[in-house]
Design a protein around this nucleic acid. Structure first.
Length: 461
RNA sequence: GGAGAGGUGGCAGAGUCCGGUUGAAUGCACCUGACUUGAAAUCAGGCGAAGGGUCAAACCUUCCGGGGGUUCGAAUCCCUCCCUCUCCGCCA
């Protein structure tokens, strides 16, 4: 139904010349201007809402900085104007063959004043920018106020956890019994939190990603994308990983002394969403729905000792990501849709899950509203996160300057971005291994996956 | 990796050697109006972004790949980084 749109989107995204070269400082100076406008509207209310997620906005500092900025900006612009006017008159005088010397004398000290004002303004802008980049997104009013995952609200459940008449093994035991994983080899090659998969398990891992991609493209109108796994700093700023969460990602060494290193993507959300960076879409190009299957790399700083066994928490894992770029008024509807797309994968794989609405304190930095899908893991006797679907509103769009032209005003306006896992492939594999295990150690292959595995119905040693 | 060419508005494409009223000729696209039964064609006008400012305007500042420098003044000169293209080499 959206096929033609999807095709158009690819074309638009891939049009040569639309890619904006990575800008650094000047681009960020613009960003903060907008952040300020945003904050200024109602700073007390903003602070109150940010508090719900445990963030203390220092409104006084902000207001003081902003007022200072305003004064400095006006001063600087006045000086620039004066310089421009005088320079022009010098040009005229010179063209008329008049003596320029007296005019030059008049401007002699202007340059210094201007330089000083500019430097001061610049410094302030950097401060303000840093201040604004650390502010998380504002939770939507529909988000329950809470501190941590214990305050998340269960929205729904799907499927019945299976009753086992034998001792349930965890996915590591299940996979090892059919010779499908080898963590020791991975540790030899690289270190902890990596895995080597082999044979039918490796194949099922691949099949899962293929199945997910095919479903999202053929059923839900997403355009399949192939994207870089290494991105520059601007991309990481754009989606909100930088500056606050730099430690969570892996980075390459800078290529040159001054050059910035690249970062391994922690999720395909980064490259997919940043496709919109610096772009102005026409209204009829939206919504843009993209999906990609990529590896994801996370340093897992701060999670030492958590989920050390098995595939749950790896430094490298695969994910099929869903990203949507939509008009502002459509984003909440789009979040429901996108979450539904991820849910449908679990349903087709017949994996019991529940849908959680994250509370204000448990949401990601850039999200205004997030649903987590948690799949049932019998060995852990609990539900574990397998997908996280978020409406970022214009949070990322603001950082990226991702806009569309509103036909009503004919002006560029920030669009809204959404993303969700559809699904995390490694954890889906875990869920199948655990939920579909048999007493004899074999694992049944979900029906929808069988065509992707040459008709194999059971994984066995 | 070696050699060369180039990065200008939605697109195409001048300007850059010899810096000055150039946010930027021209063409296309687009919008409005006139003409027309309607359309095409033609004619007239408009048509980048961000920030400041204003009730709204006027108006001001900034932006010709990024950063820095020279200058009263830089799209134009200098340095540097990034990217693109062509040829050679190498390679999946």
């Amino acid at each position: 139904m959206v096929k033609s749109d999807a095709q158009c989107n690819v074309k638009c995204l891939l049009l040569p010349g639309r890619c904006v070269a990575g800008n650094t400082i000047s681009e960020r100076l613009i960003k903060i201007m907008i952040d300020q406008k945003y904050l200024r509207q109602d700073i007390a209310h903003t602070a109150e809402r940010l508090k719900r997620r445990g963030f203390d906005l220092d409104a006084e500092t902000y207001t003081a900085l902003d007022e200072k900025r305003k004064a400095l900006q006006i001063k600087t612009q006045d000086l620039q104007n004066e310089r421009n006017v005088r320079s022009k008159s010098i040009g005229k005088a010179k063209a008329a063959g008049e003596d320029i010397q007296p005019l030059l004398a008049q401007v002699s000290d202007l340059g210094e004043q201007l330089d000083a004002a500019k430097a001061e303004l610049n410094e302030l802008l950097q401060t303000l920018n840093a201040f604004c980049l650390d502010i998380p997104n504002i939770p939507d009013d529909s988000v329950p106020v809470g501190k941590d995952e214990n305050d998340n609200v269960e929205i729904s459940r799907w499927g019945e956890p299976r009753q086992f008449d034998f001792d349930v093994k965890d996915h590591v035991d299940v996979a090892e019994r059919i010779n499908g994983v080898d963590f020791e080899q991975a540790a030899k090659l690289t270190g902890s939190r990596f895995v080597v998969m082999r044979g039918q398990v490796a194949r099922m891992h691949r099949a899962l990603a293929q199945f997910m991609l095919d479903t999202h493209t053929s059923q839900y109108g997403y355009t399949e994308m192939y994207v870089p796994y290494l991105v520059n700093a601007d991309s990481m700023y754009g989606t909100g990983q930088f500056p606050k969460f730099k430690e969570d990602a892996f980075h390459t060494e800078p290529a040159t002394e001054e050059g910035q290193g690249l970062s391994l993507i922690p999720t395909a959300e980064v490259p997919l969403t940043n496709l919109a960076r610096g772009e102005i879409f026409s209204a009829d190009e939206l919504p843009i729905k993209m999906t990609a299957h990529t590896p994801c790399f996370r340093s897992e700083a701060g999670s030492y000792g958590r989920d050390t066994r098995g595939l749950i928490r790896q430094h490298q894992f695969e994910k099929v990501e869903l990203v949507q770029l939509v008009k502002p008024e459509q984003s909440f509807e789009a979040l429901e849709e996108l979450t539904g797309h991820a849910e449908s994968i679990l349903q087709m794989l017949e994996l019991p899950y529940r849908k959680m609405l994250l509370c204000s304190g448990d949401m990601g930095f850039g999200s205004a509203k997030t649903y987590d899908l948690e799949v049932w893991l019998p060995a852990q006797n609990t539900y574990r996160e397998i997908s996280s679907c978020s409406n970022m509103l214009d949070f990322q769009a603001r950082r990226m300057q991702a806009r569309f032209r509103n036909p009503e005003t004919n002006k560029p306006e920030l669009l809204h971005t959404l993303n969700g896992s559809g699904l995390a492939v490694g954890r889906t594999l875990v869920a199948i291994l655990e939920n579909n295990q048999q007493a004899d150690g074999s694992v049944t292959v979900p029906t929808v996956l069988q065509p992707y595995m040459g008709g194999i119905k059971v994984l066995s040693a």
